Each structure stands twice: as structure tokens, then as C-alpha cells.
Amino acid sequence: MTDRRRYPSDLSDARWQLIEPALTAWRTERRTRALGIGRPPEHDLRAVMDAILYVDRTGIPWRYLPHDFPPWATVYGYFAAWRDEGIFAQLSGLLHRLVRTAQGRAPEPSACVIDAQSVKTSTNVPAADQGIDAAKKIVGRKRSIVVDTLGLLLTVLVTAASVPDSVAGTALIDHITATHPAIGKAWVDGGYRQHLVEHAATLGIDMQIVRRDPGTQGFTVLPRRWVVERTLGWFMLHRRLARDYETHTTSSEAMIHIAMIDLMSRRLTGESTPTWRAI
């Protein structure tokens, strides 16, 4: 790795040790599939991951990457490959289990919380992938996420903002049942309909709708739901997630996994996440 001035988003040595085995295994497997044909890789995987974290954290376009990183086209090529082959989701899942174990929890969660966040989109997002969230009066996309009771991401689905919460929730519940069979309890808000509760019950999940007291005025912390709301707040530490800039919904999902990789790796190594208020 070439010497250069470090950025606040760069991986520390301890965080790189958590991530490096998965990326090295991916590169080795790719080389094996290619039967060793072609030039050896020119770019250091840590430098590439640092560049991806820089984009996610600062929100800049790929073409605006500083020149002390590998070329932007190379970095984007790795990002696209890792996105399409599920490497970011794999890393997120690995770190999720390590964080739970470090905090004295079972590696696999037994309960989850589901919520959605509608965000505006940039001009490069295809019109077909956008919609109107009538309740929140937002034209853009919707991020539906499932987190455990620690607020750590289990899965994410990005759709047009017009997609009803219960429709996205059905897809999420089906996915969670297949990937996290230990989950038997889920909490959602009032935007998720009774038919989703019934669908979850057929899969062995007891889903509870946590409603806001009609007589309550102003901000109120709601039981269980505050956990997922905090996770959505964590996303905003990464400027790439302040608005959906991605042409493909799979890229949007990858950027959310990258944000959680950043957060969970810092939690495992005891490093704080720099905030813009501290600058």
C-alpha cells in the first residue's frame, strides 16, 4: 500500500484485519476462476476499500475521488463486483455476528424490528425506480430495513417510495425467515397492515404493531421502534445516504451495507465514528 495522508474514513489496521480475509478470499477465488490468466492485480484491496468508504462517508461522485486513491473507474469496478456478488452483505453479516458475540448475545438474533425511510433522489435515478410516498410527501425511493434489538442491520430492500410498507415488509419477512430462522418476534409501526401480521404468523413469527398513543403530542420515544429509528439516524452520518444518488437499487442497498460495515467495524475495535459537528 502506498504511503499517503490518511483520511478520517480510512480503515485502521485493526478494522482492516476484520475485513481483509473476506476480500482476499474473493480475489483468490476470482483468480482461480480465471485460471490465473491475465495480469496480477495492480491495486491494494485496502486502498480500494478505503476509497469506497470515502465515497460512502463524504457523498462525492465516483469521478471526484482524490487522486491519491486508485483510479475512480477501478474503484467503481471493484464496488460493482462486490455489490453483484454479495460481498458487502456477506461482510455486514459477518461483522453483525461478531458484534453480537462481543456484547454477550447469541450470534443469531431471536427478534427484529422493521421500518422504512423515504428519501429524495438525484437526477440520475431512473423515473421508473421512483415513486411518491403520499404520507410523507416525498418523491423518491424507500429504504425498508430489518434490524435486531441492538439496531444492527439484518437486511435491506430499496424500492420506489410508492411501494406500500406491507408489500416491502412481506418480501423482508420472507427473506428473514430463510436467512435468520431463529427469529420468532418482530415489531413494526402502524404503516404495516394486518395481513402482513397474518403472513408473518404463517412463517412462525409473532409480529406486533407498536402504535403511537393518539393523545400524545410532540416527539415521543416508542417502545422497540426507537431502535430502528436510531439505525436510520446512523445512516445520516454517511452523506451518500442523505439522498439516494444511485442509478440501481442494488447500489443503494450496497451503500447501506457499507455504512453498517463502517459502524460495526468501529464498534468492534472501540473506535468512535467522526461526526461533522466535531469538525
Rank of each mutant, 00 (worst) to 15 (best):
A14L: 15
P126G: 09
S162Y: 10
P223I: 02
I173K: 04
I87W: 02
A80H: 06
S144P: 01
Y76R: 07
Q130R: 15
T155V: 12
T155G: 15
A106G: 01
R240I: 01
T216L: 11
G38N: 02
V147A: 06
I132H: 13
Y192I: 07
G218Y: 02
S92Y: 02
L11D: 09
W276R: 14
M236T: 13
Q130V: 11
A128V: 13
S166C: 05
L153G: 07
Y76Q: 09
L65Y: 02
T28R: 15
M264P: 00
I145C: 12
Y192G: 11
L91V: 08
L154G: 06
S252I: 07
T216D: 12
P41I: 13
R31P: 01
W226G: 05
R266M: 00
D262N: 14
T24N: 09
V75R: 01
S166A: 12
Y54A: 01
T159S: 01
A242T: 11
A25K: 11
D148R: 02
P126V: 13
I145V: 15
I261E: 00
G140F: 09
W234M: 03
A116I: 05
Q117L: 13
P181K: 13
G218T: 08
W234A: 06
R240S: 04
K137V: 11
R33N: 08
G59E: 05
R267D: 08
V146G: 10
R143H: 00
G190P: 06
A51Q: 07
I132F: 15
A178V: 07
Q90D: 03
W187M: 00
E42M: 10
F219K: 07
A106F: 08
S265A: 15
V227A: 07
K120H: 13
V227D: 08
T159K: 10
D174Y: 03
G215F: 12
R141C: 01
G151T: 11
V221T: 04
E198P: 01
R27M: 08
D213M: 04
R105S: 12
D244N: 05
L203M: 14
L172D: 03
K120T: 15
P8Y: 06
L241R: 00
V99Y: 08
G151H: 05
S12Y: 04
A278C: 10
T216H: 12
T123F: 10
D115S: 00
V139Q: 11
S144V: 12
I138W: 04
Y76K: 09
Y64F: 12
V125L: 09
T202E: 14
D262Y: 14
Q130S: 04
A128Y: 01
I176T: 15
G233V: 04
V221Y: 00
G184F: 01
D50L: 03
L35T: 14
R277A: 11
I205Q: 03
A134H: 11
G270M: 05
S144R: 07
M49F: 13
G218M: 08
G215W: 08
V147F: 08
T159P: 06
A116T: 13
A34N: 13
D84S: 12
P8N: 01
L222H: 07
P274F: 06
L153Y: 06
G140R: 14
L237D: 07
K185I: 11
G59W: 13
A168T: 15
